[in-house]
Simulated assay, not measured.
Amino acid sequence: MRTRVFWALGVLLGLALAVQPGQRIPEFALWDPQGNLVTPATLKKPAVLVFWASWCPVCRAEFPGLHKVAEETGVPFYVISREPKDTKEVVLAYMKAYPRFIPLLASDRDKPHEVANRFKVLGQPWTFVVDAEAKVVALFAGRAGREALLDALLLAGVEVP
């Protein structure tokens, strides 16, 4: 019981500290797999940013549902590992099962886990839905349910199925 209480308090604290709806996303510069530099200015928007880790069982459970939403809506889902040990090779191998996701990789300027710190992400998965102005319209700490995610995409200006 205590473990659940501490976990819930941690999630609430994390949500209070993270980038909030209405705020612009922090600056970052990461590479996509084709070698293009991705920044908040170059993101295809609206977009979804998902912070994850290759070892995370919740991420593994959530990704098939997120991928289905990406396929159905055509919205770009950028995935950023917050695990410093997730190498480019690990990330790209993991993402082979999710071709609609755009993994963002370390650049000369930024590392993915540093970007997670700028968003004040305290765990994984954490999902941010961003509108055309790069403002957060919704965030999810833990699993993002399908209906809640579709509602957030509506708020971001996306026509959903």
Rank of each mutant, 00 (worst) to 15 (best):
K45V: 05
E83Y: 12
H67I: 03
E62R: 02
K68W: 03
V79Q: 02
S54H: 13
A53V: 01
E83T: 10
E62S: 10
F77N: 01
Y78C: 02
A47P: 02
L49S: 04
G65P: 07
R82V: 13
T42K: 08
F77W: 04
R82D: 12
V91C: 02
E71N: 02
L92D: 10
L66I: 03
Y78P: 03
C59E: 13
P84N: 11
P64Q: 00
E89R: 13
G65I: 09
R82W: 10
P64M: 05
V90F: 05
P46I: 04
G65D: 15
E62W: 08
V69K: 03
V48G: 00
L43M: 04
K45D: 00
W55S: 11
I80P: 02
C56L: 08
P46R: 03
Y78I: 04
K45C: 09
W52V: 14
A47I: 01
W52N: 07
T42C: 07
P57T: 07
F51A: 05
Y78W: 07
Y78N: 08
H67K: 01
A70S: 06
V48I: 14
K85L: 15
I80L: 06
A53R: 05
V58Q: 15
C59G: 09
D86S: 11
R82C: 14
V75F: 01
I80K: 01
C59M: 10
L92R: 11
S81R: 07
E72R: 08
S54V: 07
A61D: 14
E71M: 08
R60Q: 15
V69G: 02
G74F: 12
F51H: 04
S54Q: 14
G65N: 15
K44Q: 15
E72W: 02
T42R: 10
V90R: 14
G74S: 07
I80N: 02
P57K: 06
L66P: 03
P64D: 05
V48H: 00
V79Y: 00
S54R: 12
P64F: 01
V90G: 10
T87L: 10
T87M: 11
V58C: 08
